[in-house]
């Protein structure tokens, strides 16, 4: 059974249709790139999978259950906005996460802190924008979750930090997990994703393994993306 099953999912914001009759199954053990232009429904889809938005129609099953308490136990979600109190120190945030998430791996978190060259006693508000983003990636990836949902983890981040964030994604990913990464910066992540979902107007336009698509079209996923959407 697929860890994520979506059948005929629709999501409206008033008259605007963000997701339009979308159906897909996703298995564990892969990193999936969720790409599409702004407003194509990427964030809406991730929010629904993360149990942050229950106002949708259609069927969404995570490990066989509707998004809710049970799915929150196995889903680690990274929002595209900052969402952690700025007055906390890095080590306090790690403590906070391990208080609330039983699958939080403190050792992993402190290792990544070192990788990111961040000090445990540093406060979020004393960090630059890129560092704040890194901390959130760190906290999200330090959970030994079954599903990771990362909404635009590398946008608005300088190239050096981008590299480290990608690194921590590879490091945090385990073989029995599913990771979904939404982005419009395909260039940077195309080497680390197994398969890709092209979303357009709330529908899946192309899906497939990245290596197969490269072979089939003879171009990079990024070029393919540009060809389709321009």
């Amino acid at each position: 059974m697929s860890i994520i099953q979506i059948n005929n999912l629709c999501k409206n914001y008033g008259k605007l249709q963000a997701i339009n009759n979308l159906s897909i199954e996703l298995n564990s053990g892969q990193i999936v790139g969720l790409v599409g232009p702004n407003g194509s429904g990427k964030s809406s889809l991730l929010r629904i999978l993360g149990a942050f938005d229950m106002a949708y129609s259609g069927e969404v099953l995570i490990n066989g259950l509707k998004p809710g308490l049970e799915s929150r136990k196995i889903v680690s979600y990274l929002s595209d906005k900052p969402y952690i109190s700025e007055s906390l120190r890095a080590e306090q945030m790690i403590k906070l996460y391990s208080d609330f998430f039983s699958d939080f791996n403190q050792e992993k978190a402190f290792n990544m802190l070192e990788l990111f060259k961040l000090k445990p006693e540093q406060k979020l508000k004393e960090m630059s924008k890129g560092m704040g983003d890194k901390i959130q990636v760190l906290l999200t990836m330090s959970r030994d979750a079954k599903i990771y949902l990362l909404d635009e983890p590398i946008s608005g981040v300088d190239p050096a930090s981008r590299k480290i964030i990608l690194r921590s994604m590879i490091e945090g990913f385990s073989e029995d997990a599913l990771m979904i990464v939404s982005t419009h910066l395909l260039n940077d992540i195309e080497n680390i994703i197994d398969s890709v979902l092209f979303l357009d107007s709330g529908q899946i336009k192309i899906k497939g393994s990245t290596d197969d698509l490269r072979e089939q079209y003879g171009k990079s996923i990024n070029e393919l993306f540009e060809q389709i959407f321009q």
């Binding site: 590879i170 073989e175 080497n191 680390i192 197994d194």
Partner: peptide, 17 residues
Amino acid sequence: VRNLALSFAVNPNTVQR
């Protein structure tokens, strides 16, 4: 596999393959 994936900055499954 993980270390190779990290050093080439690619997906672990690709390295595995």
